[in-house]
């Protein structure tokens, strides 16, 4: 293989004229972090709401949440991003479509919301599983004390359900970070996109992707560590195995 290694490439100026290649990757990392963070918040909020709906006894609630979850889980993320980015602006009334297309940072918001919705379906399944894992009597106890249904969920069921599902939520958080790389296909300059740009400008493919690999790895290790910390902080004395 006739490859010219150059580990100093990170500190060389990129042809974009905005700093070194390291600065380029750094800006990509920030975008990855921002998109993932917003997507994760959306996934948690909508996932929790849909998970609650899925746990209600009403057949209508089950139908609505079931349709939502199956739609978002069974269409590939890439297709979903394309649908939000390219197709939706054509389907809505013209004025809205124009607004969507002219929105500054359209790829950013499309990615954050699209990824967030995609992940929300997976979070919803975890949340409803967590609720179902609680003893049946917990809801009865909340109801018997005079809590309304929303209060019973908020004060009794959800705090425990979230503790139960923290380990699987950790992997969903990591999936969110990893899946954010798909956003490069709609033109978002996140970490993978910046890595590819570095490769194309410098022809140092190995150095570029080594950096990306290490950064993703560290990022996900940090996310795992943070979630473990949270798990430890929320652990209840005398409860379960812990």
């Amino acid at each position: 293989m006739n490859y010219h290694w150059n580990w100093g490439i990170y500190w060389e100026a990129s042809p974009e004229g905005t700093g070194s290649y390291a600065d380029m990757l750094w800006s990509g990392l920030l975008v990855t972090l921002e998109v993932s963070a917003i997507a994760w918040v959306i996934a948690l909020l909508i996932g929790a709401a849909m998970g609650v709906v899925r746990s209600l006894p009403s057949p209508w609630a089950k139908r609505i949440s079931g349709t939502y979850i199956e739609l978002l889980r069974n269409i590939p993320l890439l297709v979903q991003l394309f649908l939000w980015y390219f197709v939706m602006p054509e389907l809505v009334p013209d004025a809205w479509g124009d607004w969507l297309k002219q929105m500054p940072d359209a790829p950013f918001w499309n990615s954050a919301v699209g990824l967030g919705l995609f992940m929300s379906a997976r979070v919803a399944v975890q949340v409803s599983t967590g609720i179902a894992a609680l003893p049946r009597g917990q809801q009865a106890a909340g109801t018997a004390l005079g809590f309304t249904l929303p209060q019973t969920y908020w004060y009794v069921l959800l705090p425990m359900a979230f503790r139960v599902i923290l380990p699987p939520l950790t992997s969903e958080l990591i999936n969110t970070i990893k899946n954010s790389s798909v956003a490069l296909t709609i033109g978002l300059a996140e970490l993978t996109a910046r890595t590819r740009a570095m490769q194309e400008f410098s022809f140092q493919v190995f150095e570029a992707f080594t950096a990306a690999t290490v950064i993703y790895l560290l990022l996900n290790l940090a996310a795992t560590w943070a979630m473990r910390l949270l798990e430890r902080r929320l652990r209840l004395p005398g409860y379960g195995a812990g």
Binding site: Q138, A141, G142, P159
Partner: peptide
């Protein structure tokens, strides 16, 4: 109301 399995809130 008092239940067979107590149903205290564990958290």
């Amino acid at each position: 109301m008092v239940f067979q399995h107590f149903e205290l809130f564990p958290h």
